[in-house]
Amino acid sequence: MAFKQMTKEQEAFQQNVQQLRDVEQRAAAWMEQRPLTEQQQAALDTYQQYRPAIQQLLKIAEHASSSGDALQQMQAELAANKPSRAKEVAAGLGSGAAGALSAVGHPFVQLYEWTSGKEIVTLKDTKEVLGEAGKYLSGKQTRVWAQAAQEARRFDMKLESFYESYNQMTRALFSGDRQQLQTAQDRLAYAMEGLGDAHGNLSSLLRQNHAELEQLSGFLSVSGEFVKNAAIEVAITITAAKALQLAAKGAVKALPKIAEMLTKETAEGAVAITRAEVIVARGVTAVEMGERTLHTAKSGYKMYYAGETIHHTAEQESQLEINPVAGR
């Protein structure tokens, strides 16, 4: 009964992602409304500071949901292939080979029947599909699929721990608690390490058994594609998670105020005062533009200086003889 079931962490993950999306949407709405009250402007400024972290969290959420899409595609392909395969088996009843297939039960048909009516939504489901598929295979294929099922199982566990740490990270960002943020970062680092191992194992499985995976047809190729996608997905997730770690490192202030301020009601209130203050806003914009120009000129100097210190060190350290790589 694993199908359609979501773990608490996955549910919390969806909720957290929705909360982040809400903040993004409301902030976007505010950006189009000028002028804002001092309080609103302060909230929007704080949001701007957190924007990279929020966007990294949303990016990771996209990657995480892509695994669900891959599994849905797998299910759709299973359903789409069934009639032709069943027909093929039925039409070949007279021949020895097809007859034998029919007698033992063609793996595709067997598996389809087994999954019929079940919705594959999680990696856990795929793990079970892979496990079931293993029953109908022979020789080296069995070993490959047993390994794939094992890796899917491990990956599932690691992903669960990733969801957990993702949620902790989101909660920590919203609470503004330094200690909580540190703990969340540590847990995320640990989960990433696990995902890294899972990625390595999946990649190595694909590399070592490429021929077997290529030979497998029908539903097996679809599942093979999933394993391949999973490996890619883990790689992307790790990259995104690393970026998140970096984004979160700087997040020492609290997000709750932004979440609180960026409520629908407040945003609607802002619309009401927009018209009366529009002329003032234009003036403010002009001043802001002037300040921005001054700021960028100052940052030009700062960058120049930082670049110069790198330049001088690099210049001193580069004075050595190097032979190019031979035979490239």
């Binding site: 500071q49 957190y50 924007r51 990279p52 972290a53 970026a243 970096l246 984004a247 490192k249 700087g250 997040a251 020492v252 700062k302 960058m303 930082a306 670049g307 790198i310």
Partner: peptide
């Protein structure tokens, strides 16, 4: 892409 959002360091 790796620069921290609140870092004062450019590089």
């Amino acid at each position: 892409g790796m620069r921290m959002p609140f870092s004062s360091e450019e590089y």
